[in-house]
């Protein structure tokens, strides 16, 4: 057997190509550090996957608002099924698509807690449409973080309701044909029409600026929840490099050039007077 060479990690670390400046690397100069509430283990997501970025900003918001003890999350089925492994807050796993129903129960029993669900597009807009629509219509006072990557990521890339027209997936190998497979579902816009819904906003996490905006939006939504304004949904248009069969960079370019023109970013509904 041939001998394999491994990088000596310790040596690599101390041997960083450009020496780092010890005068700058002091605790008082930190401008960005991994959020405390994000558990310090490697995430299982593919390289460049927007799920990880979304987890990260959500936990940054929890950290900044200081509500780690007061927030309860509901994890979905999909690639983010293990969200509870990474988010160091109280979490409950829901059956596929039923996160909003589970969150309803939690919020009604513990109205003083912040409650959020974290759901993919297959979870929220396909199998879980009924639960989502009715929770929104009842004006349940919860936050839904909706990760729209236009595909079923976990099950290896089937067409989702949000898949773009012409987009190739394993179940639309010739591209989504709207004549037979219907049009992409603007679920956020649909929900925004319901009177129980307080806040709907669409963001992305593919550039630093978009990350900042998405984070602000999450914080705002939690603030509205505290004021009891009703159902809040923050959609994050993101990538799935593995199932789009792209490199992370190409997938972000696709988000920019194809997804965002189709799913325009910005507020879709804001509470009156806000």
């Amino acid at each position: 057997m041939s001998e394999r060479t491994y990088v000596d990690i310790e040596a690599e670390l101390t041997d960083q190509p450009i020496n780092f400046d010890e005068d700058i690397c002091l605790a008082e100069n930190v401008v960005y550090v991994k959020p405390q509430t994000l558990i310090d283990i490697p995430m299982h997501y593919c390289p460049g996957c927007g799920h990880s970025t979304a987890h990260k900003i959500l936990m940054e918001v929890v950290d900044e608002m200081g509500i780690q003890e007061e927030i309860i999350g509901v994890a979905p089925v999909g690639c983010s099924v293990f969200a509870y492994h990474y988010m160091n807050v109280d979490m409950q796993e829901a059956a596929h698509g039923r996160a909003c129903a589970v969150a309803t129960g939690i919020k009604r029993i513990m109205p003083e807690k912040y409650v959020f669900t974290y759901q993919g597009d297959g979870d929220l807009a396909a199998i879980g449409t009924a639960e989502t629509v009715h929770a929104a219509n009842r004006g349940e006072n919860i936050l839904v973080v909706f990760i729209n990557n236009g595909i079923y990521g976990m099950t290896s890339g089937q067409m989702a309701p949000t898949t773009l027209p012409g987009m190739v997936t394993t179940t639309s190998p010739y591209g989504r044909d709207v004549k037979t497979q219907g049009h992409p579902l603007y679920i956020s816009n649909l929900l925004a029409n319901l009177p129980g819904v307080a806040y709907v906003s669409r963001h992305s996490v593919h550039t630093p600026n978009n990350v900042r905006k998405a984070k602000k939006s999450l914080a705002k939504a939690l603030e509205y929840q505290k004021q009891g304004l009703g159902f809040c949904l923050v959609e994050i248009v993101t990538n799935c490099p593995s199932n789009w069969k792209m490199t992370p960079k190409q997938s972000n370019q696709f988000v920019e050039e194809k997804m965002i023109p189709f799913y325009p970013l910005g507020d879709i509904k804001v509470p009156e007077g806000k």
Partner: peptide
């Protein structure tokens, strides 16, 4: 890191999905 031009804007850290970058300024 391949050069010394960093001004601590934290853009890299913001987009890093796995939060592996710590930024100082």
């Amino acid at each position: 890191k391949v050069n010394d031009l960093c001004n601590g804007c934290a853009s890299c850290a913001l987009v890093c999905p796995d939060a592996v970058i710590t930024v100082y300024r």
